[in-house]
Design a protein around this nucleic acid. Sequence first.
RNA 1: GGAGGAGUGGCAGAGCGGUUGAAUGCACCGGUCUUGAAAACCGGCAUACCGGUGACGGUAUCGGGGGUUCGAAUCCCUCCUCCUCCGCCA
Length: 426
Amino acid sequence: MLLIHELRAHRERAITGLRKRGLKEAQLALVDKAVDLDDQRKETQTRLDSLLAERNQLSREIGKLFQAGRQDEANTAKERVAQLKEEAESLQKSMNEIQDEIESCLLNLPNIPHESVPAGQSEEDNEIYRAWQGSMPVLPPDALPHWELAEQYGIIDFKLGAFITGSGFPLYRGDGARLQRALINFFLDEAREAGYVEVIPPYMVNAASARATGQLPDKEGQMYHMEKDDLYMIPTAEVPLTNMYRDQILQESDFPVKLTGYTPCFRREAGSYGSDVKGLNRVHQFDKVEIVHLAHPDNSYEVLDEMLAHVSGLLDKLQLPYRILRLCGGDLGFTSALTFDFEVYSAAQGKWLEVSSVSNFETYQANRMKLRFKDGNGKTRLAHTLNGSALALARIVAALLENNQKEDGISIPEVLRRYTGIDMIR
RNA sequence: GGAGGAGUGGCAGAGCGGUUGAAUGCACCGGUCUUGAAAACCGGCAUACCGGUGACGGUAUCGGGGGUUCGAAUCCCUCCUCCUCCGCCA
């Protein structure tokens, strides 16, 4: 959530930034509306506060009058308080309405993009931040896409998953399951060695948590919701991990807070269709190791670089061709100020698949969840939150299968062999 | 799922209708003392908002929400969480 006093103080910067996202004028108008409403709020609060102050004052006097046995005077004062109370109630009501309206304006305003974010409408306009310099995999002439390899080697069963649950819920078995587990362990070990504290969080969260990281209200339809208990299946470990620090005030010396967690991720992917959804390209349940960083505002962009380097390192070790995109304004997530996507080349499909998204949210999430810290002067300030996939499994598996297929099987990357115990899937 | 108990500041823990935003202790910060440290002593130490250049003043918050009352941390209702016992169970 954007800060109202920032919008007030730097209106032009906010508007210019939001324009980069391609927001329509009607939505941009929310900025001015929020500030106007906040003016009203201040005025209302000033009046309300003075009414309440008078009420408190009188109440104290009534107490003394009663003790002194001066009933008549006390009763006169009571009448005055009753009158104040009525006025205060009506002011309180309009104050609440104004505040709800401000909140709804702010909830509908996305984060202001970082200055380096290129303008643009859609993914076509994303900037290639780092292109792949290395060689591309050379495939055998009869190379197959991963969904056919999966069937041929009996390692992923899409049909059975669909039978048990529904489409988009793959079932991994044998070496396929083993490969999943190997990747999870590899990613977690790498994260731990990079100083991230491993966490196993709950896989369902309440509405307050989903709101804090920004999944609610803007991604409501994308989460699985357990109506009976009003809980949401997590779409990413980002939600529970970041919420570990909701409503907290850290000490400056607590930074950096580095967390990692493996969780399954659940996404409804409502509205998806077409060839994008074939095989592992887009599924409702997938495994992911996430890294989360809580950082001091002064160095959060250095932290972002550090995270990019970490993710790059993973892909280098897996020997997968990848490129890094800097998302344009139109493709940028609602809550993010700057996002880099990692795409891996899945050779048999001839497609770049997104396997990681690394973002700095600056104070946007922190403001929603009231995640603060005390700076050197003892002042309370909002922290910056960052997170990234390191990495999302399903598509990594797709690329590994396709890129590493040989005449006699699928070779396992060197770094994974100590986890899989095998060097080929046959 | 059933029965009972409890939720107060960073922690511990008083208060149970009226200058209580909240005693006291611990922790923490500053000072005095000391060559230095400890001890002792003195002072400070919640969050958010409103008004004010500022000093400062005001309002709200004692798990969340609602109610009773001139006045609520204190009484009532409701929800949540934790603890104990019973039931069920990986």
